[in-house]
């Protein structure tokens, strides 16, 4: 467990259990993610994919277990993690421009009360350029299509210049061309030694996009190279039939005081 190179393991999760109102939605997840890989997280709706990502970042209280980012706690290494939340997580009527949002990706590197510098703006502009959104830089974010909003979020994550990226459904609501452009971007990040965990819904493309897959359904069903875990049996266990006993037990746990 305490391998000497643990500081080069981007993400290590040990026996992670997460509960909402005492009702567990993730049980005992154990993971060790190697550096420089593009990893898909797949599982049915409500499997706990978003929950897993949030728990890794400490956004949710954890019932048991621990998470290490490059060998340290999340708090200590949060500047090495980039996050792209689900699009629905924010109010798009909020009075900020596209540029403002992308600049938020730089905030983690700024001190308290420090304003973004010229260099930060330059980086933000480059990231917008990469997702082909530069012409929209001064638009209010609500005037964008869903796919464009998604690209703004991606640009913000890119602006974080992190080593480990956690992305929640970056491909939702984007057209095929944009999806291809995004996956090219992610692959480029990977080739530069970054590690990416991407929640994904489309099984057909998952096989082609990712080196490794995390299959989740309330627990870790499988984690490994795509060719090894993308098998009918494992997919069946992940998606087929609810895990009736597990969810029943969870239900009782939440009703007993």
């Amino acid at each position: 467990m305490n391998a000497p190179d643990s500081s080069s393991t981007p993400l290590e999760v040990h026996d992670l259990t997460v509960a909402y109102h005492k009702k567990p939605v993730l049980y005992g997840i154990d993971l060790q993610v190697p550096e420089g890989s593009l990893i898909g997280i797949i599982g049915p709706n409500g499997a706990g994919k978003s929950t897993f990502i949030k728990a890794v970042m400490g956004l949710l209280p954890v019932s048991s277990g621990w998470v290490k980012i490059f060998g340290k706690s999340y708090r200590e290494n949060c500047h090495r993690v980039g996050y792209m939340p689900q699009r629905e997580s924010v109010d798009w009527d909020f009075p900020v421009s596209v540029m403002d949002v992308v600049l938020m990706g730089r905030y983690g590197r700024l001190r308290l009360a420090q304003r973004p510098t010229k260099q930060d703006r330059e980086i933000a502009r480059n990231c917008l350029e990469k997702v082909k959104m530069l012409p929209f830089a001064n638009r209010q974010i609500g005037n964008l299509s869903g796919g464009q909003q998604q690209r703004v979020f991606l640009a913000r994550a890119l602006a974080q210049e992190s080593d480990l990226y956690l992305m929640d459904e970056p491909f939702v609501g984007v057209d095929a061309a944009t999806e291809a452009a995004i996956i090219a971007l992610l692959r480029e990040l990977k080739s530069r030694g970054k590690t990416l965990l991407v929640v994904h819904h489309d099984l057909a493309s998952a096989k082609e996009y990712f080196d490794k897959l995390i299959l989740l359904n309330m627990r870790l069903v499988a984690f490994g190279d795509t060719d090894e875990v993308f098998t009918p049996e494992i997919l069946q266990t992940t998606y087929g039939g609810r895990l009736t006993i597990l969810s029943e037990v969870a239900q009782t746990l939440s009703t007993t005081p």
Partner: peptide, 9 residues
Amino acid sequence: FDAGFARSL
């Protein structure tokens, strides 16, 4: 705007 993202930072 985005409390979750802010916390992740």
